[in-house]
Structure formats: C-alpha cells, structure tokens
C-alpha cells in the first residue's frame, strides 16, 4: 500500500477558509460533522484529518485503480492515538501514521519502521522526506497512468510511487526499498 501527504502549516495558514462551515462541510464525513458539531476543531487537528484522508485516498485509488474524485467527505478518520489514525471508505480501511510538529504534518500509510528524527526529517525504509527538496529532479522519470496515478521509470520498468508536495516540503514513498536506494545512489534525490 502506498500513500503519503504533507501539509506545510505555514502555507496552510493562508488557507483562511478551513475554519468556515462551508469548507468543512465539503471535507468532513457526516460522522465527523456530527462529532465536531459542538467542539472546536483546531487548526492542527483539522489539517491532520485532511492529511489522513489524502493518504487513504491515494492508497484506495491505487488499490482499486479508480478515476480521480474529489470526495474527502467519503473518508472518515478516527484517532487511535495522537499519531495514529484509522481511515475508512466503504469497506476499505487503513491505518495512517502522522508526524506533527509546528512546521508541518506528514502522514503516511502506517509502517512501524517510520521514525521521526530531530531535524524534522522523517526516515522510513521506503520513503524519503525533506524540506526544500527539488522535486524537478524526479519529474523526467515520472509517469502517470490514465487515472493520474504516479509511477517512476527505473531501468525501463514502471514502479509505483506516491508523491506529496506542499509549500516547502516534498516527500516520496516507494513500494520497494531498492527503488529508493537506486535513486539515492544515482544522486537523483538531491536537495
């Protein structure tokens, strides 16, 4: 399963409508609307929910090879702990890990090996996350299928990749650690 999402919290500050009822009604699942009706949903909480939905959307879309849809309201997020959530859509569910700090939220399909390090970089056996990473370095290797699902061409074969980019942050997640190692050794993952 692949899915990752980063929210640059500085950029999200400019998304001034997140707090409005109109915006939240288009994003939250009916159960979430009910849950947060009488509670104040804070800035970080809202964007963590959003980020978990994005992760689940990417994993679900790839698994079932679906056309792009704008349906955040179909995903319901329940918190297991501050950094772990379960996301459900129809009969599909997945667990998402979120790394939260004052600068960003990075969410990824749960993987016990993912750890957050002190310099705000997150390492995981199959993902690469960095501030100010130049995304263009990978662009010439990227391909999207008819549904817009991304793949990366490595040694003439197409490997699944999940990409997220928001503000200052870019992150990639690969199916195999070997793909990450290949790009690293080829000096493609440069800042």
């Amino acid at each position: 399963m692949l899915g990752n999402d980063v929210v640059d919290l500085e950029l999200a500050q400019h998304q001034i409508r997140w707090e409005t009822k109109a915006f939240q009604q288009k994003v939250l699942h009916p159960l979430e609307i009910k849950k947060y009706k009488d509670k104040v949903l804070g800035f970080t909480d809202f964007w963590k929910i959003w980020s978990c939905k994005e992760v689940a959307y990417k994993a679900h879309q790839r698994k079932f090879n679906l056309k792009p849809r704008l349906n955040p309201f179909d995903f319901s997020v329940s918190e297991i702990s501050t950094s772990r959530s379960e996301v459900k859509i129809d009969n599909y569910k997945c667990e998402v890990a979120s790394f939260i700090n004052p600068n960003f939220i990075y969410s990824i399909i749960h993987n016990p090996e993912a750890v957050s390090s002190q310099n705000f970089e997150i390492s995981s056996y199959n993902s690469y996350f960095k501030k100010d990473l130049n995304r263009n370095c990978l662009n010439h290797m990227l391909h999207k299928d008819k549904n817009g699902i991304p793949y990366i061409k490595i040694n003439s074969s197409f490997k699944p990749i999940s990409i997220t980019h928001h503000g200052k942050y870019v992150a990639f997640q690969f199916q195999d650690k070997t793909d990450l190692n290949f790009l690293w050794n080829a000096d493609i993952l440069k800042s």
């Binding site: 999200a12 409508r17 999207k144």
Partner: peptide, 21 residues
C-alpha cells in the same frame, strides 16, 4: 485535469468548488 495537469493542490480544489458556488 485540475489535479494531474494544472497541479492544483487538493485542498485548493475545495476552494475552487466554493468559488464556483
């Protein structure tokens, strides 16, 4: 496509919908 061609961030797609309304 808003997402794959114009590369509109998905949170901003919600803004697009609100602006269209």
């Amino acid at each position: 496509s808003f997402i794959s061609d114009l590369e509109i961030n998905s949170a901003h797609l919600v803004d697009v919908i609100l602006d269209v309304e």
